[in-house]
């Protein structure tokens, strides 16, 4: 029998760390991450599943954490933007976003990075169209997406060549 109630015990692994909490059945995963666990890197832009700022990876699948209830993820492995860097060392994608000026206000960036991370795992050498489709669920109000696509493309090339990405010269097409 499944346990029925307005609160539930939940055990998850978040960025490699096991945590157990009692959650309200009505708590959204994004609030569990931000308010209960203090992982405020995951942002809330719309709260209706439209903007992608809250994107995280649950059991290897990219999802919007405002569209999932906390009790649904019991037993899951969760990756958030906080798990991308290794200490002070940024992930190749983060590095590439930095180098290609792929963020302005940065509000969409955590979600963009999670979508890009998922995309490159599924498809290490995406075309520009595949990159654009990969971030279809992530809205950016600042950049116009061009530099985000460039950054993801550069990171995929860097991944392919096994080295760090080469910084683009100003104004040059990467």
């Amino acid at each position: 029998m499944g346990e029925r109630g307005t609160s539930h015990a939940v055990t998850v692994e978040v960025n490699g760390e096991k945590v157990s909490r009692i959650v309200a059945a009505r708590q959204l995963l994004v609030h569990f991450l931000r308010d209960t666990l203090g992982l405020t890197g995951t942002h809330i832009g719309c709260d209706t599943g439209n903007c992608g700022a809250c994107s995280v990876i649950v059991n290897g699948k990219l999802v919007k954490s405002c569209m999932i209830l906390a009790p649904q993820v019991d037993g899951a492995t969760i990756e958030t933007v906080e798990g991308l860097a290794d200490g002070d060392s940024l992930s190749p994608l983060q590095e590439s976003f930095h180098e290609h000026h792929a963020l302005q206000c940065g509000y969409c960036t955590p979600g963009m990075l999670m979508s890009a991370t998922y995309l490159l795992r599924q498809n290490p050498d995406p075309t520009d169209e595949e990159i654009r489709r990969g971030i279809r669920g992530n809205i950016c109000r600042c950049t116009g997406y061009v530099n985000i696509v460039k950054a993801i493309r550069a990171a995929s090339r860097e991944q392919a060549s096994g080295g760090r990405p080469v910084p683009a010269a100003a104004g040059e097409e990467v």
């Binding site: 499944g2 109630g5 307005t6 959204l28 009790p71």
Partner: peptide
């Protein structure tokens, strides 16, 4: 966003789900 109070249950079988419904 705060949802209205609600219960949650994850039945272990289809029969159990149909029973609750």
């Amino acid at each position: 966003m705060l949802l209205e109070q609600v219960e949650y249950v994850r039945p272990q079988s289809l029969d159990e789900a149909l029973e609750i419904l």
